[in-house]
Every structure is written in C-alpha cells, then in structure tokens.
Simulated assay, not measured.
Amino acid sequence: MAFEPPQRLVRALGESLHDGDDGARAWLEKLPELAGAAVARRELAVERVMVPGGRSSLVVLVRLSDGRPAVLKLAPRRARPGSERAALACWGGRGAVQLLDVPGEGEAPGGGDAGGENGDDGVLLLERLHPDVSLRSLPEAKSLLEAAGTLRRLWVDPPAGHRFETVAERTGRQALAMRKGADADADVAPLVDAALAARDELVATAPEHKLLHGTFRQSKVLAGDRMPWLAVGPDPVVGECAFDLARLVRDRVEDLIASPSGAAITRRRVKRLADSLEVDLERLRGWTLFRAVESGVRARRVGRVQDSELLLEFAGWL
C-alpha cells in the first residue's frame, strides 16, 4: 500500500518551514518508507490512512497479527513522539489511549526524544478508538463535563527523574517568538504585552506540578470501547493544571466569535471549568489569554490570517 500523507499534514508541516525546520521536509519525503518499514516490522495488516487526519502525524488504521484493530502513528521529531510515548506509558490507559508496543532502543525514558538508529523512534502502536466520534459531537454542557472527567484522570504526579518539558520551559520559548511577532507587527503588541505579563506572573507562582496532556481540547478525546472517552495526541508537559485547562476554554472558538454573546459565554465557561476542576479562576483566565495570543500570533506568522483574527479577538475578551 502507498502511504500517501494527507494534505492537512502536508500543509501543517509546510508551516514549520517558517520556523526554519528543514527536518520536517526530510521526514515527509521519507514517510512512505518509514510507514512501510513500521508495518512490516510489526506484521500489521493495513486498512487505510486516516483522512483528513492530524496536523502533526500520519495515522494509519491497522490490524495486529491476531486480528485485533489498532492504530499506527508516525510523527516527526518536532512533534516529540518520545514524550508522547512516555506520557502514555505513565498513564497506562487511565484516561488516555493505551500504548500497545514497548519503547524501542532509541527512546529516551521519562519524556526525552532521543534520536535512535532503528528508524522507529517516531512510531507508536495504539489501541483503536472510534476516530470519527469525539467530544465535539456532544452538546456543549455534556462535552465540558466529560472533558473535565478525563482531565481528572490524566493529572497525575510525573515520574521521578522525568525528562518532560515544563510549562515554564515551553512557554519561555513561545514568549520569545511572540515578542518577535509583536516587534514586527504593532497591531498585536498590546495583546502580546498583556499575555507576556500574565505568563511571567503565572510561572513565578505555580501552585502544583502535574503531568499534563499539553494540547487538550474536545477533538482530542475520542469514544472508546474500553472506556467511554479517552484522550489522544498529547504533547505532554509538567506544570499547573490551569495551563492544561486553558486550551479547552476556547474550544469551538468560531462559534463563540459568531455569537452576539460570545464574550459573556466565554466568561461563564472560564468560571464553570475553574469551579468544576477546582482551579483558580484568575490563573485559568491568565493562561487562557497567553495561549490564545500565542496561537494567534503563530497563525499570523505562517499566513493563517482568519485563524489569527479569531484567536486574537477571543483573547481581547479576556
């Protein structure tokens, strides 16, 4: 079978070239070969490539040698597949998709992304969920309730000696890129200044350090057979829970912007989520502001103008 990467993945990796990541192009060129080798090594039967799929990996529906359905996922180094593997191993299927294969020799334990020489360091074999049924299929109130329950299971103490990136480290890198964006575009400077000020205060006073999903939103929680809802696609990080919850606040942002009461709905959502997960409301608001502005500035930098405008307008409500 030809492992043709979906256009959504091709476009997303093309955006990474704006950040000088030539490795993404090289990985994309080798992807059919990498996928074929991973399938052969595990003696998998291929059903189909998921389309449109994700923005950071190739997802292939497969069957194991005993006939059980599974998912083969291949991701480039920039997507930190070693960290994803380490987090899934830590969760052990509790609240998240189950990892079916063991780490390869090239995987760094505890969250690192070592380079490995077996060509398999960016490959994960996962249990099969229902890829077309996410929390976005539920009404708003029910989806937020189920999302909160999933996050409660994921927020655990990180393993001793872990090598996961911290919230302070990740947002520090993002802050540098945001400042460059503001210097080049005066229109976004006031929001960037507010977001960076919020970030500085938040990282200086973090109340806890838990293992977080890192990119949690409704589309990242899929229906399963083993449990009703399970998280997929983490970009794990260690830090305070409010950081993880912040991305969920802006879910369905296009609907919020289109609503005449979008700002009021957003404020109610922040309060509801903070109360349901016992997170400080102002810390959640601050991280929601930072993450929305960071995403908006990044979208602007790579030419996704409409996405940028939605995110920055949303950030202005906070």
Rank of each mutant, 00 (worst) to 15 (best):
P81R: 03
P81I: 01
G82E: 02
G82W: 04
S83E: 11
E84N: 01
R85A: 10
A86P: 03
A87L: 13
A87I: 11
L88V: 02
L88F: 03
L88G: 06
A89V: 13
A89L: 14
A89H: 15
C90M: 14
W91A: 02
W91C: 00
W91G: 01
G92T: 07
G92E: 07
G92R: 08
G92W: 08
G93D: 11
G93F: 09
G93P: 08
R94L: 11
G95P: 01
A96M: 11
A96Q: 04
A96K: 05
Q98M: 11
Q98A: 10
Q98G: 03
L99K: 05
L99P: 01
L100K: 09
L100N: 05
D101N: 10
D101G: 06
G104K: 11
G104V: 14
G104C: 15
G104E: 12
G104A: 14
E105D: 15
E105L: 15
E107C: 03
E107A: 00
E107P: 02
E107K: 06
A108L: 11
A108K: 05
A108C: 12
P109K: 03
P109R: 07
G110T: 07
G111P: 02
G111D: 07
G111A: 13
G112A: 14
G112H: 00
G112T: 02
D113Q: 08
D113W: 06
D113S: 09
D113L: 05
A114V: 01
G116L: 14
G116N: 13
G116A: 14
G116R: 10
G116T: 14
N118A: 12
N118W: 09
G119R: 12
D120R: 04
D120V: 04
D120N: 11
D120S: 09
D121I: 04
D121S: 13
V123H: 04
V123Q: 01
L124F: 04
L124W: 00
